[in-house]
């Protein structure tokens, strides 16, 4: 089993519907698949616009998987279950 800590960062811009939905969805997945093995950071670009450049953020909301590498990005409100799992490579983890 991979016991590595997952580092996730969610970029949002204010409390928009999409942002709120994305955060709620993300928390659900993490609790389901990564319980106790993840660290989640939410960046509000309205408050910290200078952070957008570093992770090449264009779309909002964007979820970035910093660790484990490679870096993966998932955009959208994370409402499509399948795609999120594929995008974050969570399914492979489950199979282990």
């Amino acid at each position: 089993m991979d016991e590595e800590m997952w580092e996730l960062r969610l970029y949002v811009a204010g409390q928009t519907v999409k942002s709120v939905t994305a955060l709620a969805n993300l928390k659900k997945y993490c609790e389901e698949h990564l319980k106790g093995r993840y660290r989640l950071e939410v960046v509000d670009l309205l408050l910290n616009p200078q952070l957008a450049e570093g992770d090449q953020i264009l779309a909002i909301p964007t979820l970035v998987r910093k660790v484990p590498s490679p870096i993966r990005k998932v955009i959208g409100d994370l409402s499509n279950h399948e795609r999120v799992l594929v995008g974050l490579d969570l399914r492979a983890l489950d199979a282990c």
């Binding site: 994305a22 670009l45 964007t62 990005k73 409402s79």
Partner: peptide, 19 residues
């Protein structure tokens, strides 16, 4: 690097540009 999962917009670009 990008997977699409539902609704999104390009507010990030706007913010970067605005900044």
């Amino acid at each position: 690097e990008i997977a699409e999962t539902g609704e999104y917009d390009l507010e990030g670009l706007f913010i970067r540009l605005g900044y």
